[in-house]
Design a binder for these strands. Structure first.
Lengths: 176, 176
DNA sequence: CGCTTCATGTCAGCGACTGTCATCACTAGA
DNA sequence: TCTAGTGATGACAGTCGCTGACATGAAGCG
């Protein structure tokens, strides 16, 4: 169903694609669609949930002596090869999302979910509440920055180096 | 209409309040509601748009020799007295928003809108693209942090001091 | 063979949202 | 003062996202 949805929406646009059409294209009915996905947008974000789980697990498993922001960056590192192997798909998906405000909203919500999950994981590592929240926010900002650069980057540096340069930029901005 | 909406939703919940009810409570019809607000959520966020305009204008007007992050913080300072005078209303509104995921999504979207507007304004001040994006992201993160503290703060420090302590915390996290 | 369970289909219905046309007040200008 | 135009609103019908309730059929298990 996710594949069918991405193809249909990429083809004719989000508004012009009904849930019924997606379901039929996958050989099912509209009602069944809503048994798998909470709403229409969600069909494009199921993979995002897996990504979040992956990164949070990596954060929990990170060496306990790392500073908060370093632990966050390390955790993101665990996901970068997964992306590096699927750059074309990620670009297609991002194109669809960037084309519709409703989808951008959902993406922001997923990012926020990631951020709060990382905050929680940092708390569990013994980081204080404010430090955890801001380290997660900063790390996520750097990742988003690096991710955008990576998607746009024609000469194919890998995602991780883009994320690291995002952290560097962040340090420069803050250090003033 | 905004007042009617906030009261009704605070009273019986977002899902249990229909657009038609809000419109009638304001002496209008559902169709007219949708001429003023793009969708049901938006009625709770019109004020947010004014806030964004205010802060962005302040950023444009900030002394040109300020560092990016300092300019952002200064711009937020222009809005804090507005909030300090309306703390009770802000709390009511935040309570409603926190009670429904759809509204949280919209709030994130508004925050993102603010962030990109500030990025643009920083660019216009001559700040480089990456620095602008990250300074805006960092500033917004600090503001959100300070805002949450301020809403929860019983002994009434003003918003600005909470935001400044957010920036301090951010510096500590990053500096490692 | 009967029982349960799980995935799916069917159907009816609500509410968000839109396009279209009608109505009515208000204004500008002859 | 009449008239034409403009802008805000209402009325109505229709689409689509989404949900609850019940039916069906296949798979597994005693």
């Amino acid at each position: 169903m996710q594949r069918a949805a991405l193809e249909l929406i990429a083809d004719r646009g989000y508004d012009q694609t009904t849930v019924a059409e997606i379901a039929v294209a996958a050989g099912l009915t509209e009602r069944t669609f809503f048994r798998y996905f909470a709403d229409k947008r969600e069909v494009l974000f199921a993979s995002q949930d897996r990504f979040i789980a992956l990164v949070v697990d990596a954060l929990i498993a990170a060496p306990p002596d790392l500073a908060p922001l370093e632990a966050v960056v390390t955790a993101f590192g665990a996901s970068t090869t997964w992306f590096d192997e699927r750059r074309a798909l990620a670009q297609a998906r991002q194109g669809v999302i960037d084309a519709h405000p409703d989808l951008q909203e959902r993406e922001l919500a997923k990012i926020a979910k990631l951020s709060t999950a990382m905050t929680q994981a940092l708390s569990d590592r013994g980081v204080s509440e404010p430090q955890a929240a801001l380290a997660a926010a900063a790390g996520v900002a750097a990742f988003r920055f690096g991710f955008a650069q990576w998607l746009a980057d024609a000469d194919g540096h890998d995602l991780e180096s883009h994320v690291l340069s995002g952290v560097d930029e962040l340090r420069k901005v803050i250090a003033i």
